[in-house]
């Protein structure tokens, strides 16, 4: 299966990519790992006339921890992130990256492409919400920082301007008394999740939840979040009743779309289980337990 014909441009620098994209306009797309874009082009969901290949731009795939901050270049692949010192230090990052598709897709797919496709089934955007990440975006009008929570306008649509690219992703290293968990339910490896849930929480003395962020993926047209659910748990000691209520609240905020992966009711039931599991693992990690989290297969 061939994609429709297109002109190919390899960008050697970020500036070149941006000027090519702004010159070529609407008919051009940035190409990172191609694990979404090439599939869409082969299936004729998209027929760009120009591809601007970002993948050879140097310096855009570094993964580092500087001071109290993690910085991941937009071109870092799922595999590179999963095998990095960042994933070793922050288990929720490993949970997420290691479960994305399969080894082959992880070799090519990038975190920037995962964000740029604005696909609510992609795992990184959901995870990055729980870590309150900030994205650096560079375009012809300069550089700006946006919160990951503000990136997506609607399904498959970001607020990025034409010719504006995500260059790096930054978030704070979670404090010592915190723990997180990301889990997805999938039918098999080379498939997007049926549903996913991420929870990152910090416990103070007496198991008082001093901070929490929760997010659901594949649970609506955008990543689903619920300040109301987080507020139920924030500021008081964790109890089973509180966790149940917060779980119900965020699952009620979900708007799962019935599709070949399941009905709305089925997806809500899956989400319910995933949130509970994620909270359980996050709490145990806060207490210093080492748990290999992973995505669940049928």
């Amino acid at each position: 299966m061939y994609p429709a014909p297109f002109h190919y441009h390899r960008a050697d620098s970020l500036q070149e990519a941006i000027s090519l994209l702004s010159e070529l306009g609407e008919s051009a797309r940035a190409l990172a790992g191609g694990q979404t874009l090439l599939v869409w082009m082969k299936l004729r969901f998209d027929e760009p006339q120009h591809l601007v290949d970002l993948s050879r731009i140097p310096g855009l795939s570094d993964i580092s921890m500087e001071g109290d901050e993690v910085c991941i270049g937009a071109l870092a692949t799922h595999a590179e992130i999963t095998k990095s010192a960042v994933a070793d230090a922050i288990p929720i990052v490993h949970d997420c990256g290691s479960g994305i598709a399969d080894a082959q897709v992880r070799s090519r797919g990038t975190i920037g492409g995962s964000l740029g496709s604005a696909d609510p089934s992609c795992d990184w955007p959901t995870l990055l919400h729980t870590l309150d990440a900030t994205l650096t975006c560079v375009g012809s009008e300069g550089t700006r920082k946006i919160s990951v929570s503000d990136l997506v306008e609607d399904i498959y649509t970001t607020i990025l301007k034409p010719a504006e690219l995500i260059t790096e992703i930054r978030f704070k290293i979670p404090p010592a008394n915190s723990g997180g968990s990301y889990t997805a339910f999938k039918r098999c490896a080379p498939a997007y999740p049926t549903a996913s849930a991420g929870v990152q929480l910090t416990l103070a003395d007496g198991d008082v939840c001093s901070d929490i962020r929760m997010a659901l993926g594949s649970a609506g047209l955008k990543t689903i979040t619920s300040k109301k659910a987080e507020d139920i748990l924030r500021g008081s000691p964790l109890t089973k009743a509180g966790i149940d209520k917060a779980t119900e609240t965020i699952v009620a905020a979900a708007e799962p779309v019935p599709d070949q992966r399941g009905s709305e009711d089925f997806k809500r039931a899956v989400l319910h289980t995933l949130v509970k599991r994620a909270v359980d693992i996050a709490v145990r990690r806060c207490h210093g337990e080492t748990i290999r989290g992973r995505h669940e297969y049928v």
Partner: peptide
């Protein structure tokens, strides 16, 4: 394997 990494060659351009 491309530079040692497994890839699905139906989802990579030859030019890549």
């Amino acid at each position: 394997l491309v530079d040692g990494n497994p890839v699905k060659s139906c989802t990579m351009l030859a030019i890549q």
